[in-house]
Amino acid sequence: MSEASPAKAYSLHLGVIALLFVLSFLLPEYYHGLLARIMVLAVFAMGYNMLFGYVGLLSLGHAMFFAAGLYGAGLAVIQLGWGVPLAFLGGIACGAVLALLIGLLALRTTGVAFMIVTMMFAQVFYLLILYFATWTGGDQGMVVPQPARVLSFGATSLELTNPTVRYMTALGLFSIVLLVTSAIVRSRYGRVLVAIRENEERTKMLGYDTFSNKLAAVVISGTICAASGAAYALLFGYIGSSFASVQYSILPLLWVLLGGAATTLGPLIGTLFMYYVIDITSGYTSAYLLIVGIALILLVLFFPKGILGSIRQRWLGWLP
């Protein structure tokens, strides 16, 4: 792998953010709304990529972190009447605490056991949401009331239901997370994570405490996913148990695999691509899960590095 030059990488990231900003004024209404949703979900994928791409830990339970943010923020507004900024932070805090707890337990295992353990914890989380249906709304879900979804700064107030505000908020979150994750993976700490992925025993022998490094990665990853979930609840106004189901643990894996694991922009490309494929095919068939299944198998068979991973390997070695 050739050394990525920081200037090129940063200008690429800023270019992508600028492009998304300009698109806000050009896209027709339907795609405008879709892209806002995709950006929020791409944040979920970036959080997943942090753990899967850079540390090489394949979790099958990340829906619980997304759902922790979703319910943490949503229920804070619905049941406790908190304001939007506080609820958003509350959602993130829920995800961070849950990630710390799950990390402490699940990181005692490796490989296949790690996947099964994360899947089981996520399943417990999902069942708990169903069990406490009186507070969470169960599988019916709940709507976050429109009047509560307002950001107010002194005299001015921004309604999150307004499409432009929604798009810009999603873009803001996306940009922050993109810049933060690319800074993390470029840092000394990020390199330790890659070293753990490549050879954990050797990293341990070089004197690094691999457990606490991995634990920190789980917490960062879970926190980012929770931020995505919290934003989703506040921007789109719906919380439901389906967001905690196994399917939502598998989707970020699919997005990251498709876009390219361990690339900073892969999660966005993967989410975007998958959403449009589903959007186009759903015009012809309702069986979009079939497409997901076929995509997963073709990806692991022929493009294990994903779109950006393949591009980086063949042409652009500097791609972040």
Binding site: L289, L290, L296, L301
Partner: peptide, 28 residues
């Protein structure tokens, strides 16, 4: 599928998830 993946544990999990969706949708 599985033989071509050399029975790599992580790749086979992803592939069998794919099979799960395909079989389920076809059944539906």
């Amino acid at each position: 599928v599985l033989r071509r993946l050399n029975y790599n544990p992580e790749a086979t999990i992803v592939a069998t998830i794919g099979m799960l969706y395909i079989i389920q949708q076809l059944a539906l």
